[in-house]
Amino acid sequence: MFQPTASFSSFSVDDVEKARAFYGGTLGFDVADQMGGLLVTVPGGQTVFAYPKPDHVPATFTVLNFEVADLDAAIAEIEGLGLHLEHYPSTPEMPVDGRGVLRDPDSGMGIAWFTDPAGNVLSVVTRAAAGAGHP
């Protein structure tokens, strides 16, 4: 039986120093050097590993989600840091508003996306509000 002792996620960046400045400086997370990359401790104590890759191409999907209690407050904080939300096209399956935010009126969930300096997609997301929507 496969029995790991822990797990973590990783993604590539094209510039470790820019990643250090972003994750450690702009976002204020703990960042430690590890194997030529960065071990980033995110809220909740989990870690992610950002490793250098000379031919880095950002993923076309979200690589890291930050759960927040208040989506609009988190968006204001992100914008206050000089970051900008990504604006994906609104579709019937993904009806985003004019700010680029997807909200589910049934569940109370919401999500907004932004990128790191390497173009990796990150998000702030709320879970379903207590008593909202379906279990």
Rank of each mutant, 00 (worst) to 15 (best):
T26A: 12
T60S: 13
A50F: 01
E17S: 04
F11P: 00
A74E: 11
H56D: 08
V16F: 01
I111N: 02
E93D: 14
G98W: 03
V48W: 00
P4Q: 10
V96E: 02
L38I: 12
G44W: 03
V48T: 09
V68I: 15
P89I: 15
S107P: 02
F114V: 11
N120C: 06
Y88N: 04
E79C: 12
A112P: 01
P43C: 13
G100Y: 04
P58W: 09
D55P: 02
L85S: 09
H87Q: 05
M94G: 03
R103E: 04
V121Y: 02
S107R: 07
S90P: 02
P95L: 15
P52T: 08
Q34P: 01
A76Y: 04
D97T: 12
L85I: 13
V42L: 11
M1L: 11
S7N: 05
M94W: 14
D72W: 02
P89A: 15
G44D: 06
V13S: 01
A112H: 04
I75D: 01
G98R: 05
G110K: 03
G25I: 11
E67C: 08
F2N: 07
V40A: 01
V96F: 08
A73T: 11
G24K: 04
G28P: 04
D33Q: 10
G133V: 14
S10K: 00
Y51A: 00
V101L: 12
R103A: 09
S9K: 00
V68T: 13
P43E: 11
F11I: 00
T60W: 03
P52L: 13
H56S: 11
F22T: 11
Q3D: 03
Y88T: 09
L85W: 02
P92I: 14
S123M: 10
A112I: 14
V96L: 12
R99P: 01
R99C: 08
M1E: 04
G24E: 07
A32G: 04
E67F: 15
L27Y: 06
Q46F: 12
Q46G: 10
A59H: 05
T26V: 15
E86S: 09
F66C: 11
P92A: 12
G25S: 05
V40W: 00
P43H: 07
T41K: 06
T62L: 11
G108P: 02
P58M: 13
A50T: 06
T41L: 06
D30C: 08
L81E: 02
G100K: 03
D104E: 12
L39W: 09
D72T: 05
A59K: 06
F66Q: 09
L39F: 10
V125E: 10
V42I: 15
A69P: 02
L71G: 04
W113K: 05
V16W: 01
W113P: 01
V13T: 15
V121H: 04
H87T: 07
F29A: 12
P105E: 13
A59M: 10
E93H: 09
P92D: 07
V121G: 02
P52D: 05
W113T: 04
P117F: 13
A74V: 13
Y88W: 08
E67G: 13
L38P: 00
F66I: 14
P58S: 13
Y88I: 11
F8W: 01
H87S: 06
F66R: 06
F2C: 08
